[in-house]
Amino acid sequence: MLLGLVWYQHLGLWVAAILTLAIFSFLYKDNPVYKMAEHVFVGVAAGYTLAYAFWSTFIPNLYRPLANLFSGGEIKQGELLWTWMLLIPALLGMLFFARFHPRFGWLSRWSIAFMVGAFAGLSLTGKFQTDLILQPAATFVNLNPANDGGWNSVLLINLPILLGVLACLTYFFFSKPHTGFIGVTARTGIFFLMAAFGASFGYTVMARISLFIGRLQFLFWQVANEYTHLFPPPT
């Protein structure tokens, strides 16, 4: 039964369903149909990303301000020099592509250097603030029984966290041999780490199952239901 949808929507459902099944065919064994779908995926994703970057970055952040500058449009006070200086990231960005040329490949290092430097600067301050100041601070501040949870939360939650953090850090500390008291502490740290890895594994299982259920929801609720009305999706 063809209801409501127009031709390209029907075509879309079929294409999507066939591609979904093509990927699942890999579970039986590697085969040309899967391989084809895989290559389609890489191609489409790469083309999509480029077009998206073009319209959402180059046009508004680079082209418009520069076009405005060259066409003599109105520029905010104090912005004239900065607009001219947009030519610097344009040039640095273009230098990325020098790597495709054997003689000028070294020029692409300039743009890489910018990105590496910027991210180094940001992670230095960001990680310091987040993980080395706020996190240790919380570990100790939460030990105050005057907080919301009272003694219960101190003894059942926050004190064990403090001991666990110290034990794990002891395990990571290799400048002293792990013997005697340090050895016992480090071993306790391993137990905490294993419990955490177990938790991560449990959550990973949940994630993987969810993704498959997502595909079932698509195949039955969207595709099969369109033609049979037996699998109504939630409204």
């Binding site: 601070a137 939460n142 991560s200 959550y203 969810s210």
Partner: peptide, 14 residues
């Protein structure tokens, strides 16, 4: 995602 969630409980706790 469930894969990344366990790595962020400490930020909720803090």
């Amino acid at each position: 995602t469930a894969v990344s969630a366990p790595d962020f409980f400490q930020y909720e706790s803090s």
